[in-house]
Amino acid sequence: MRFTINGSKREADPDIRASLLDVLREEFALTGTKKGCDHGQCGACTVLVNGRRINACLTLAVMHQDDDILTIEGLGSSDTLHPMQQAFVRHDGYQCGYCTPGQICSAVGMLDEVAKGWPSHVTDDLSAPVLNDAEISERMSGNLCRCSAYPTIVDAIREVHEA
């Protein structure tokens, strides 16, 4: 099978039972994408597939022929951080770091959804969502942080959005 992962063409012959998450981690050694629950309940495995955020644990790798997959490693490396990664460092939007790649991928995908005008459960004006803190929290509630760095995660995302 062929995938485009972080801009590079990659090939693999995945087990038909393997999730996209396990193939990313175990086959391609892209271990920045984390496994927290393997059931779509925690969001630690969030990656961007064709620009949309998904839980990589809830989808089989064999469903992604020719898909464009962006993981945390493709967003930025430790010496060339993406603005969202920088904001998480600056605002201390993490503690143990395990949910962090998923939070960051999710935040990037979420800002794109807002830019496209997609409303959420807490949107007042469905035709023109305004990204206040309640919107950020609502839209990021699929990403658990057991260290509970939620306030600083919101700070980081707000800053990137306003920049």
């Binding site: 271990t31 920045g32 945390i72 490693e73 967003l75 490396s77 460092v89 790649p101």
Partner: peptide, 9 residues
């Protein structure tokens, strides 16, 4: 260790 954590490294 922030840059390593936010980049998944």
């Amino acid at each position: 260790e922030g840059p390593l954590k936010v980049s998944g490294a």
